Amino acid sequence: LVRYRTISKIPQITLNFVDLKGDPFLASPTSDREIIAPKIKERTHNVTEKVTQVLSLGADVLPEYKLQAPRIHRWTILHYSPFKAVWDWLILLLVIYTAVFTPYSAAFLLKETEEGPPATECGYACQPLAVVDLIVDIMFIVDILINFRTTYVNANEEVVSHPGRIAVHYFKGWFLIDMVAAIPFDLLIFGSGSEELIGLLKTARLLRLVRVARKLDRYSEYGAAVLFLLMCTFALIAHWLACIWYAIGNMEQPHMDSRIGWLHNLGDQIGKPYNSSGLGGPSIKDKYVTALYFTFSSLTSVGFGNVSPNTNSEKIFSICVMLIGSLMYASIFGNVSAIIQRLYSGTARYHTQMLRVREFIRFHQIPNPLRQRLEEYFQHAWSYTNGIDMNAVLKGFPECLQADICLHLNRSLLQHCKPFRGATKGCLRALAMKFKTTHAPPGDTLVHAGDLLTALYFISRGSIEILRGDVVVAILGKNDIFGEPLNLYARPGKSNGDVRALTYCDLHKIHR
């Protein structure tokens, strides 16, 4: 019993810090008490220290592992850092350059016999395009090294910054494609005289377009951006097909006994025919423009016929181009109408809503002055909100995010209106959640004399007048207030005048 009563005193000691020596009952000389009392004092002292730490809000209350900052290894790049964003855009520009100039170089340097010394005699450094290609190869190699040090988000939505895990993730992902696209074939085969082989191998750079397509997928929600990307894709495919079309004609031209190829026909049409040795002929500019003209006309199913396939190889390629053109029509131009419709969806919704308003007016036989006010209010409210119901949009977000959005939407009023000066951010967040926005066209009466005042109004834009009878008592403008002081009276009061809008007004109100 003594032991039980001794232990039962522990909660009292913990909360009230009572010393055991003052209790005459606990001072009985028993061996059990002498053993338990020192333990009680020690526990009391420890609990006292913990309570003191909690009340003082000291940093040592938290466990040590929670006080440590997340460790980022040296030379690790955050995937959302500004440097990584700028670097990704730079790589994107280099990939676009590669997609345009690599097929052009591979096709127009394929057994090209233009006048001038061969590239091997001039030297590697004197070729501007080769120098640019070398810079692109170096940048792609540097990009691989950067990807080995860039964080990523795993399946659990955690940012991984450990170098080993980053390397394994990159090896399992895009490393092989990036490595093949970054191989400097110019340096590996330079001086061997195989410019045709170098041009063909350099087309491996186009593998990076797969990554670019995935990154550009984030802009699919913007109709104008999608339309622009589709047109660029169409032009890029036409450019690639033009390079292939020229390569076919250029390879067949020296081996044909009869002059029936499209390059021969082009030379005869523009007065620059090929001679018996295969030299001469149109310039590279004429060849490229004509090839691009043929691919565009074939892809769009126009086909004027002034550039036509004559050999079997050219006919087979033309059939493939027609098939590609039909697929592009289905996948690209078939979506253009939907994209344009999405661009004008706001206008369509406006006309639909206006039609419903006019049908309501016609069905209920609203008189002319009231009908005009109804239409003007709808037009003004639509121009202010673009038909978007803010309350319906915010309803799907958590309250903390709703408060931040409301604070942002009402920031101008909260910053410049005098009653809100000096208020804490928590108070402003709470008030912003209570605001209701209303609009009024010129001549609209917001409050009639004798109406119950259940709200306090803040003028965000425009001006109003307060009338008693036919006498203008006051004219209020931006950041002015009218209405009933909230919670100042037990019952809502009545208006002693009319409140009429002089201009288009936007008002925020808080109800009782």
Rank of each mutant, 00 (worst) to 15 (best):
G271M: 03
T98Y: 01
P118A: 07
R349C: 08
V210C: 09
P442I: 04
Y293G: 01
S283I: 01
Q253I: 15
R349E: 04
D286I: 01
G346H: 04
V168N: 09
T98L: 01
A130D: 01
S383M: 10
I138A: 04
D444C: 08
G278S: 04
I91N: 07
V180K: 01
K202P: 01
R211V: 01
D217K: 10
R371E: 02
D404S: 03
F171P: 01
C126E: 01
V289W: 01
Y288N: 01
S276I: 06
A449F: 11
L93C: 01
P367S: 04
F435D: 03
R362Q: 05
M328N: 01
A403H: 03
G303I: 01
V321T: 02
E314T: 01
P398R: 02
M251F: 09
R211Y: 01
W262M: 01
V168H: 11
K111M: 11
K418Y: 06
V160E: 14
T300I: 01
I198A: 05
M328I: 08
D217L: 09
L201K: 01
I96D: 01
I339L: 10
D268T: 11
I96M: 03
G261S: 04
I198S: 05
A213E: 05
A99F: 01
L129Q: 08
R214M: 03
A119C: 04
N275M: 04
P128I: 14
P442S: 05
A107G: 01
A403Y: 01
H439M: 07
K272M: 03
W174R: 04
V210M: 09
N306H: 01
A440G: 03
F435G: 02
K172A: 04
Y329C: 14
F363E: 01
S383Q: 10
F420T: 01
L209K: 01
E115P: 14
S313Y: 06
I388E: 07
Y344V: 04
P398Q: 01
G249W: 03
I260V: 10
I248Q: 01
L394Y: 05
K285L: 13
I244Y: 01
T385E: 12
N310W: 01
M390Y: 07
A225R: 05
A119N: 11
I77K: 01
Y329H: 15
L187F: 11
W240V: 01
T437A: 11
N391R: 05
L90P: 01
L145E: 01
A403E: 12
K285S: 10
N265L: 13
N306A: 03
M433L: 10
L299A: 01
V210Y: 09
L90D: 01
E196N: 15
V302F: 03
Y288A: 01
L236M: 09
H169K: 09
R362G: 03
E158R: 11
V168R: 14
I146G: 01
P184D: 01
H264A: 14
Y222G: 05
A181Y: 01
C427Y: 01
I189M: 12
R358F: 01
F435I: 10
P309Q: 01
L241I: 01
L109S: 15
S308N: 05
H169S: 05
E195A: 15
Y80A: 08
V159T: 05
I388W: 12
R358L: 03
D137Y: 01
T438S: 11
H264W: 04
P254T: 14
P118Y: 01
H79S: 01
V393W: 08
K285R: 13
H439P: 01
S220G: 05
S220K: 13
N154Y: 05
P118C: 04
A338G: 03
T300N: 04
L230R: 01
A330D: 04
R342E: 08
L299R: 01
G303M: 01
D143A: 01
D444S: 10
A392F: 04
A235C: 14
L93R: 01
A182K: 01
V302A: 03
P184A: 01
F420A: 01
H169W: 04
E195H: 15
Q353R: 11
W240G: 01
S297E: 01
C400L: 07
I72C: 06
V447D: 02
K202F: 01
V289E: 01
V393R: 02
E314S: 01
Y377W: 04
N386K: 04
L94S: 13
R71T: 10
D257I: 11
R342N: 04
G334Y: 03
F175H: 01
W262E: 01
L279T: 09
P282M: 03
Y124Q: 03
L129C: 04
A181D: 01
S105H: 15
D217Y: 06
T445Q: 13
S105R: 10
I72L: 08
T76M: 08
E221N: 06
I141F: 11
V100K: 01
M139C: 04
L374N: 01
A381L: 12
Y293W: 05
T300G: 04
E112A: 12
R429S: 04
R165V: 07
I361K: 01
Q415P: 04
N368Q: 12
H448S: 07
R218W: 05
T437Q: 09
T424W: 01
I72W: 14
A204I: 05
I135R: 01
L207Q: 01
T311P: 01
Q379Y: 07
F190L: 11
Q341C: 05
L327P: 11
G281W: 01
I332K: 03
F140K: 01
D137E: 15
L413M: 10
T102G: 03
K434D: 01
F296Q: 01
R214P: 06
A69N: 13
S192M: 08
L197Y: 10
I189V: 13
I361T: 03
S345R: 06
L394D: 01
T203A: 11
N391Q: 14
A204G: 10
N306Q: 01
L230F: 12
R362N: 07
L236E: 01
V168F: 12
F185G: 06
S308A: 13
C417M: 13
Y384Q: 13
I77L: 05
T113P: 06
H351P: 03
L323S: 03
P163N: 03
H416K: 08
V95I: 13
R373C: 03
S161F: 10
I91H: 01
G280R: 03
L327H: 01
V142N: 01
I248C: 01
L67G: 07
V132Q: 01
S308E: 01
K84F: 04
I135Y: 01
P419T: 09
W245L: 01
G281D: 01
R218G: 05
P273C: 01
L355W: 09
P103V: 01
E314L: 01
N391I: 07
G426Y: 01
N250A: 14
R211A: 01
E114H: 15
L236P: 01
I260G: 06
L263P: 01
H79E: 05
L409A: 06
T437G: 04
L299Y: 01
C232M: 11
M139I: 03
R362K: 13
D186F: 12
T438Y: 10
P70D: 15
L90N: 01
T203K: 01
Y104D: 01
G249V: 01
L409Y: 03
L230V: 08
T295M: 15
L414K: 01
L263K: 02
R211M: 03
T102E: 01
R342T: 09
E376H: 15
M139D: 01
R218E: 05
H448T: 10
T300A: 04
N391C: 03
L230M: 12
I144K: 01
T98H: 01
I189E: 12
I284H: 01
F333T: 03
L236R: 01
V160N: 01
F363A: 11
H239Q: 01
Q365R: 11
H79L: 01
G303E: 01
C126Y: 01
C232F: 09
P163D: 01
P398E: 01
C417S: 13
P309W: 01
L413K: 01
F363S: 03
D143K: 01
L241F: 05
P128F: 15
G199Q: 13
